[in-house]
Write a protein that binds this DNA or RNA. Structure first.
Lengths: 223, 223
DNA sequence: GGGGCAAGTGAGCGTACACTTACCGGGACT
DNA sequence: AGTCCCGGTAAGTGTACGCTCACTTGCCCC
């Protein structure tokens, strides 16, 4: 195939590998397959990555960074903490069309935890993700949109669990998954739980404006 | 090794395979390894299971049934819907010592979704699980312990997502996972969210007692 | 226009794995 | 006592996979 500069080839290999690892998992995706899909021969892979595992880890890291970048970008234009949180919930990288396929690599990696290197890369990613989500929750709490009954840290863990659980289950294509008979979706429920209904939001918005001078407060929620 | 009746050998093979599949995943756990760990030779495996895949699917089904049995047993002695739900949340098979290892088989299976047979077995298990949890939520709602703001079905999906998300993340052994600085755990938060605080519970308990006289609102069981 | 160098290839190597073949032996019934 | 079922074994077979070796091709700069 056509000659490509190293950096571009490397990127292309990662893209191709992402697709195959996501589809078939780490163990089942073969290097020969990846090479063929990238329209090169196997040794090319080994010129850019010292081993299949290294390729996989590079992919985990890239996917992790890209996910975060995408997420931040989605929030970027929303200064209002409530809207930011709403987008955070809606733009679950596991759910969005763009992220879903890519993010499956991360989920696949979670079954390869017997390898310490993969485990480390994964744990790092999760920590970064938790930190980011927790930061958003803090902002929403400080603005009075989210109750301070539960700490931002634990709330962030729950959001991550929800997102991961959804993302792990979604590819099974179970009819009626994550929604009820009347078509209500979990995302909407989570929004409701986190942010309350619209009247309450309006109220909080007023509080928020008022409080811009003062200090802190909260909202309450129960299922 | 010592001669064993077929049914016992089959059971022992499943036990052994469960451990290895959970540890290493489907693709990495080899039949030779399983045989060695069970202290027999490979052909014995093939006498009881027609292929590695069949063994795996048998294991998925058994683990699924066992999980449900264990869960029901844990609830059995608690007629009070609130306590039942509390145990349901606490006895997450992904978390409990007894279930955690076994249940990793299910999580591992979720990365093998490119195989239609494995996918089907898995989807079935999830449907059964959702039905069961939803049934418990309905009971708790009818008894007034859980708000009817959200349908039982969607609430059950959220509980499953939370449990799965937790279960997928837990083996990564991330410091501070699923708890905050002050040691509050997600399980406690979920209990709070679902069942509210104790005063509200007491009130609901009174309602429940009153209503028990009128008609008959009580325990549920699904296949 | 030719030297140097990075990108690329064809053809394997060793190994590990799922699965099989051909045979052994203990014990329960006739 | 014989036989035959059935749980067990030793020793493979074919294949697919991760990875490498020895070599070629095209681009850039002088």
């Amino acid at each position: 195939m056509s000659r490509l500069p190293a950096t571009e080839r490397r990127k292309q290999l990662l893209d191709t590998a992402a697709r195959l690892f996501a589809e078939r998992g780490y163990a089942r995706a073969t290097t020969a397959e990846i090479a063929r899909a990238a329209q090169v021969t196997e040794p090319i892979i080994y010129r850019h990555f010292s081993s299949k595992k290294e390729l996989f880890i590079a992919l985990i890291n890239r996917t992790g960074e890209e996910t975060l970048r995408l997420w931040k970008q989605q929030l970027h234009k929303a200064p209002d903490p409530a809207e930011r949180l709403r987008r955070l919930i809606g733009a679950n990288p596991l759910v969005s069309n763009r992220g879903r396929g890519a993010y499956r690599v991360i989920v696949q990696a979670m079954t390869e935890i017997s390898d310490p290197d993969i485990l480390a890369a994964l744990a790092h990613h999760i920590r970064v993700l938790h930190e980011f989500v927790a930061g958003e929750v803090v902002a929403a709490q400080e603005a009075g949109f989210v109750s301070e009954r539960f700490s931002a840290s634990i709330t962030a863990w729950m959001l991550l669990h929800l997102g991961l659980g959804y993302g792990v289950l979604a590819p099974l294509d179970i009819p009626g998954h994550a929604q009820d008979e009347s078509g209500v979706r979990v995302r909407e429920v989570i929004e409701q739980l986190m942010l309350g209904d619209s009247t309450r939001q309006a109220e909080n918005l007023r509080k928020h404006a008022r409080r811009a001078a003062e200090d802190r407060g909260d909202a309450e929620d129960a299922a």
